[in-house]
Write a protein that binds this DNA or RNA. Sequence first.
DNA 1: CTAACATTCAAACGAACGTTTGAACGAGAC
DNA 2: GTCTCGTTCAAACGTTCGTTTGAATGTTAG
Lengths: 259, 259
Amino acid sequence: MSDQKINHDTRERILDVAERLFMARGYEGTSMRMITAGAEVNLAAVNYHFGSKEALLREVFRRRLGWLNRERLQVLDALEAEAAGVPLKPSQILEAFFGTLLRIGEDSSLGGMTFLRLLGRTLTEPAEFIRTFFASEYAEVIERYKQALFRALPDVPKAEIVWRLHFMLGAMSYAIAGTDVLRVVTGCELGDLAGEGAADGVDDPALARRLAQRLMPFLLGGLRAPLPSGLESQPSSLTSSSEGDAQDQTSNHLQEKQS
Amino acid sequence: MSDQKINHDTRERILDVAERLFMARGYEGTSMRMITAGAEVNLAAVNYHFGSKEALLREVFRRRLGWLNRERLQVLDALEAEAAGVPLKPSQILEAFFGTLLRIGEDSSLGGMTFLRLLGRTLTEPAEFIRTFFASEYAEVIERYKQALFRALPDVPKAEIVWRLHFMLGAMSYAIAGTDVLRVVTGCELGDLAGEGAADGVDDPALARRLAQRLMPFLLGGLRAPLPSGLESQPSSLTSSSEGDAQDQTSNHLQEKQS
DNA sequence: CTAACATTCAAACGAACGTTTGAACGAGAC
DNA sequence: GTCTCGTTCAAACGTTCGTTTGAATGTTAG
């Protein structure tokens, strides 16, 4: 078992190029010939090293998601250990979840903005095997953070928390991936958008920091918004089961006390 | 110019099937043979009636976006006329923008949930011509609502408003399109999620209503969240130009007074 | 009837797709 | 030297892609 990294040069070069191309053109929009040409390797190299195009995509993500999942669980563990039984504040949980993610964008050895944008965009890829893969990769972490949010907001219906977690994931995913729609929104008249276009453009690692700074307050505001009013007066079987608890509040159970 | 709807049967059937398939499998993942087989027309029919696959996709959207753009402008016009110079409340603007959109999901003649999900998913399609098309289709409406938000929140930096508009678009797009990630989030332990799975599943028009009810408070909460703290102390040239105004606030300029 | 027209059809086009093959290469062990 | 083994290579595999063609069809007008 000396060192098995005899020829990881080709492998890594393929992974790097695939990561960039999948980000820019999507899975179906990227051909093996684009990848191998970009990596300056033979066409057969992908199938030799990874087996198939699908397996290549999985490996592109596995290379990065290991760190992300580990770090997210670790940060949450540390927070909960430090709290010693006291429920965490929602802001702490969001910071752990989204802050850890956005740190990827600042560190090119973790994938940088390229992988961050790939991650955001791939969550909406329609291909079946991609969604299956992500479901299995994310399941444990999502579950842990969901439970943490349940404990942090005991008076909020769990279904509401799940919805809002979903909304937050969407805002983040979209914010990361959608440089184009952002340009549509901004470009109409406001081309300067606080540093956009400065430095290295969309690959600027500082962009991740700025993004986090903007995104976190938005997410927290959304998570702690007042509950929808007509929630309990829904006509049909809105509450199918196990939802009879704590559904009759109207406003500020969501305020976390400012420390 | 008698009536030019001699044979819109084939056209409409193709558009319906294409809409559904583009939603389920994406643009690149949908072949002309799937479309024509599903619509039970000849393979050449698409090229005969629409010219190309790209033109077909554009027509799929044009068929629906006309109403949406018209309605959105009209609702905003009505609101501003009624207000007679007084700035609108953010909640009114969001209701006009997102409420109009979500109404599509309740009305199958406007496209229903199928088109709504297609719309959400297509915003993140990587193909160049799709983004170009959307940019031109959305530009006017986005600009109008952006300006309305600027007037509604005069003390908030414009760049911040643009960012948050972007976040809101993302949360909505994702919430609509992402039934799968939602299932990952929910399916872990909470399979009942307040009516999910009831009635006709994801195509249930009532889902749009429930979604709107959940989404609007979240978006409002995010839009009116406190501004990020370290905004003005950014090291590099964060404010490149025309951003010297009203950037030094910290908290509650965003509260709209409750009426 | 015929002529003109819009539409449908089966068949084929060339290009691009992911994958496989079998020979060639090159370093290390014996 | 030879043999081995991991890797690279050019070439081809069979399939599917979007598009085009030209004849067949049905409808309408003169």
